[in-house]
Amino acid sequence: MMQFMLLFSRQGKLRLQKWFVAHTDKVKKKITRELVTLVLGRKPKMCSFLEWKDLKVVYKRYASLYFCCAIEPEDNELLTLEIIHRYVELLDKYFGSVCELDIIFNFEKAYFMLDEFLLGGEVQETSKKNVLKAIAAQDLLQEENDEPKSILEEMGFTVSS
């Protein structure tokens, strides 16, 4: 089971964090800081895995973003690389050649995508098509919901109930 996934930039700025195990905010911050430093400190010719406490950390860099997952000792590191890659592919399909800025400005969408792909630290859907279908359907649901409000908003009105 994946324990957590972190996305951060080459400058060490956190872009996404998904925790499947309970930690306090303080511990989460500490772990994040520690791993960001560790991963950014690794040279490009080094392999994508490191042993960290009793977990295995698998990371991969896509353009300016690092995707970093902590998995349990029994888990398959090479397959985790595939999971990361699948997530990147999903984002890419959704945003259309995704870049760091897409994820910064639409971070909630990136979370929604992850929640359709993984659940509770395990893959829930191995078909790309199904994930994208579910996201598209939900986006549609959201638009239907929001339509009347956004017109008012553009006119500068606030609606009070």
Binding site: F112, Q142, N145, D146
Partner: peptide, 20 residues
């Protein structure tokens, strides 16, 4: 009842709450 509200609400729960 709004789906958008729920979507962000649950996302917030997952990020801001934990079992404690």
């Amino acid at each position: 009842p709004r789906f958008t509200d729920k979507r962000i609400g649950y996302l917030g729960c997952m990020l801001l709450l934990d079992e404690r």
